[in-house]
Simulated assay, not measured.
Amino acid sequence: MKKYALNEITSTQYICLNSGIQISVFFLSMPRKLAEKAGTDGWIALIIGWAVTVAASLIVIQVMKRYPEGTLFDLLTRYVGKWTGKAAAIFFALYLFYYAYTGLVQAVLLTKAWLLPQTSAFIVMLLLLIPTYVIARNGLRVLGRYAEIVFMISWWIPFVYLLLLRDVNWLNMFPILKEGWMPVFSAVPTTFFSYIGFATTFILYPFLKNKKKASSAIMISNTLTMFGYVFITVICFVYYSPDEIQKYNEPMVSILESIEFKFVERIGVLFIAFFLLIFSLAWIPAIYMGVFCTSWLLGQQDHRNHLRLLWLFTAVGTFFFIPTFNQSDRMNDFLIRVGFGIEYVFPGCLLIYLWMHDRFQWRKNL
């Protein structure tokens, strides 16, 4: 019997989860950050980052094929030893909790800035944590269905942004590679924050119903993420001038002020409220998989007690302290560095180790 059969997810749910984890609040400010690094050639950096991410994602899949019925921690326990598996579980739990916390902090700051400026950060955090607990407590299958629903009700968003094309200047994009390749390459590390989250495959893989489609599923999810980022980046680049876009913190929201509907005022506020639903796909799965790690560490099947403790700790901590926008940016910079090591470097090193281990065992048995 499969160890994780109770919470199996479909390939579609996996695609939605993986792509949803990658699309965080950073999505709103990304065009500005790319413009600061590479001007209107920043979209090329997104494609390069996507290619690197696809390669790293496929390496993760190849690693998990060595032990398809277990998570990364089960695999490490089998190949290296139980203490290595436990250390990895602790490290991944801390990483996922930090990833989720940065997403929550950004969501709180965004909500206060655009929607509820007079409401305390503690109350806003509670408003986000309550549905987070309700969804995460029910396990991965419910989380997968939630991701599917969010994706299905979000397909209308790109069509609204297409309305802006009547007022754009395509000459902003030309000439391509105005200053050569160096600015583009300097912007590539910035794009890694747009794609981190695929390492959750180390935990999600044994839950997949059809593991044969894992490679194609992760490529599809990364490609969907890339298309979303490139689409909104190009829209912002052709609407704003190269210098003007750098004046807006969240150009993806500011650009909506030029769209007018007779039946609604301040459409940007409406979009921010809806974006929070999409961005919840970043912190809710991260929180669930974080408490999954701690539950695995203690050999427990029920993750809900760990989830309650984390919920309480986050809520109480927010009552006493909430990072500012500048502190949040520094947290994101640190997350990029840690995430690059965990999601891009570690899988390759692990695959080399497993290959050498299997080859040594094969020669030893000759």
Rank of each mutant, 00 (worst) to 15 (best):
A5N: 14
A5E: 15
Y14K: 04
Y14P: 07
C16W: 01
N18D: 04
M30E: 03
P31G: 02
I47C: 00
I48T: 06
V60D: 12
I61Y: 03
E69P: 07
G70E: 03
G70N: 04
D74Y: 06
G85C: 07
A87Y: 02
A89C: 05
F92V: 13
F92R: 09
F97V: 11
A100G: 03
T102K: 09
V108G: 04
T111D: 13
Q118Y: 15
Q118P: 09
P131Q: 04
R141F: 13
L143H: 06
I149E: 09
V150M: 14
W156G: 10
I157A: 03
V160Y: 07
L163K: 02
D167M: 02
L171N: 11
F174W: 02
L177V: 08
P183N: 13
T190C: 07
S194H: 00
F198Y: 03
A199D: 01
I203E: 07
L208H: 07
N210H: 04
A214E: 09
M219Y: 02
L224I: 07
F231H: 04
F231T: 04
Y240R: 03
E244D: 09
Q246C: 13
E257G: 01
V269K: 10
F274V: 02
L277R: 09
S280Y: 04
L281T: 01
I284P: 11
Y288C: 12
G290N: 13
Q300K: 13
Q301P: 07
D302H: 08
H303P: 06
R304E: 08
L307W: 14
F321L: 11
I322G: 13
S328Y: 02
M331N: 08
M331L: 15
M331H: 09
V338L: 08
Y344D: 00
P347L: 07
I352F: 15
M356H: 00
